[in-house]
Amino acid sequence: MHLSRALLSGLIATVTACGLAVSSSAAADQGHARTREAMEVMVEQDGVPGVLAQVEDGAGAWSGSAGTADYTTGRPRLALDRYRIGSLTKPFVATVLLQLESEGTLRLDDPVGRWLPDVRLGEYGAAVGGPHRSVTLRQLLGHTSGIPDYAADPALRRTYFSPRFLVHRWHSHTPEKLIERSLSRPPLFPPGTRWSYSNTNYLLAGMVIERATGRSYAAEIERRILRPLKLEDTALPGTSSRIPGQHGKEYSTLFVPGAHPPVRDVTRLNPSLAGASGEMISSGRDLVRFMRALVTGRLLPPRQLAEMRATRKAGSTDRYGLGLTERTLSCGVTVWGHDGTIHGSTTAAYTTADGTHTAAFNVNGDWSGDTRDLFEAEFCH
């Protein structure tokens, strides 16, 4: 499907006028009216297809939606819709690795080369003129390894972050081949000396889990997290292009610059391009349950949870731990969680440290920037 942004704006206005854009009335907002308004602003002003919210706080559970799940049918987004969560996969991977550390299977300060001797990271620190330092598992989880992001590779971006994606989106990828793109480039800095977000780190972390357990990171996430928490909407699709179960459409401008680039339906794609850095599918209900369980200690012993929450500066309002972001909102409230973007989908889930107020948002489009205004509206009302 090929629609212009101008035409989509007209469709959104029509849907809104017909009363289909918002699934929760003001009377049923349960104190989330500002959040609902922020969602509508994203649809009406940013031109995204739709926004879906799931919140749990002292008043109970609330779900809301704005816009549409499908430009063709005009159906609204529904509370139990599943969607791709991109880098929100990372807290799941980090949790498994920290569980393995708590069990004595590995140590956070193990060199990656101990587990992946074929990757040849041993001299990586020396390559940037610093003292010899081996990249460690801790540095992978905390994005302090200095390893470049494979997703920033110019050749990969020309193929997968442009209209050429429509031809190549069915291709399968192995983490080894994706990692080669990073290791062929100079390190960004000596390991452990700075912070720089790199999806390559989590491809490596997924490989370490497999080497340490004899099972794939997907099998370990399912066994250790999905089943115990009964996250029935959450899946690791591997190379499958489908979103299983109830879902809407996901749309992309394919990162074409300009005021009104064409919008494409990219619901079906092979997520092995993201792998352990961002392949997962979930729902608002599952993400709220996972994030609350994680920060309140249901998944990790106190020492490992403290390691995960030991953060360093990663932006003007964010700090990053081991697979977990600490964000301070304008009203002074601190929340913990992660963001995730993949073609056609933008997701974020955050919770207060005590787990009493948790929110997950999804936008079924990838051109809207981020979801910060939604969290400001939800947590700072």
Rank of each mutant, 00 (worst) to 15 (best):
R138D: 12
A94K: 09
T193N: 03
P228F: 07
A274V: 01
A205E: 11
P49V: 10
H343I: 06
L140M: 10
E56T: 11
N201W: 04
F92E: 00
V119I: 15
D233Y: 01
T267D: 03
R309D: 00
K249W: 04
T317F: 06
R194I: 01
T35C: 15
F161M: 13
A26Y: 02
F189Q: 07
Q246M: 09
P301W: 05
F379G: 08
G365V: 12
A359C: 13
M291V: 06
R157F: 00
E176H: 09
M308D: 02
D109E: 15
L106N: 06
G19C: 12
S368T: 11
A219T: 15
H260E: 11
T200P: 12
T73Q: 02
Y124P: 00
L254A: 01
T328I: 07
E378G: 02
L226C: 04
G104D: 08
A306G: 08
V41F: 10
T14G: 14
R84N: 03
I179E: 02
D265R: 05
G50K: 03
Y71H: 08
I281M: 06
R211Q: 15
V41P: 00
G67I: 11
G86S: 02
R223C: 01
H247C: 04
T356E: 11
I147C: 08
W367D: 07
G323F: 15
T89Y: 07
E56K: 14
V295C: 05
L7I: 05
S145L: 06
R169H: 15
Y197V: 05
F290M: 09
D354A: 13
G245T: 05
E44F: 02
T105C: 12
H32R: 14
L183A: 00
A205Q: 08
R82N: 09
H132Q: 13
M39F: 09
S65K: 01
E40I: 15
A377K: 04
G10A: 06
T311W: 03
L52K: 09
A219Y: 10
G142R: 12
M291Y: 02
S102I: 08
R185K: 12
V51Q: 14
S4I: 01
L137S: 03
P237C: 11
G146S: 05
R138H: 15
T267F: 09
A26Q: 13
T352A: 09
S241N: 01
M42F: 14
R34S: 14
L88G: 00
G130T: 10
E232K: 14
G315D: 13
R285K: 08
H260A: 14
G10V: 05
W115M: 03
A27P: 00
S9G: 15
R181S: 04
D118F: 05
Q30C: 04
F375T: 01
V93D: 05
G340H: 01
T105Y: 06
H381T: 14
T174A: 12
T234Q: 05
R185V: 00
D118G: 03
N362M: 14
G323I: 13
Q139W: 08
T144V: 01
E222Y: 04
L254C: 00
P262S: 11
T358H: 03
L116M: 02
H2W: 08
L52N: 04
I281A: 00
L108G: 12
F379L: 08
R227T: 15
G206V: 02
R303C: 10
A293M: 04
L254H: 02
S252E: 08
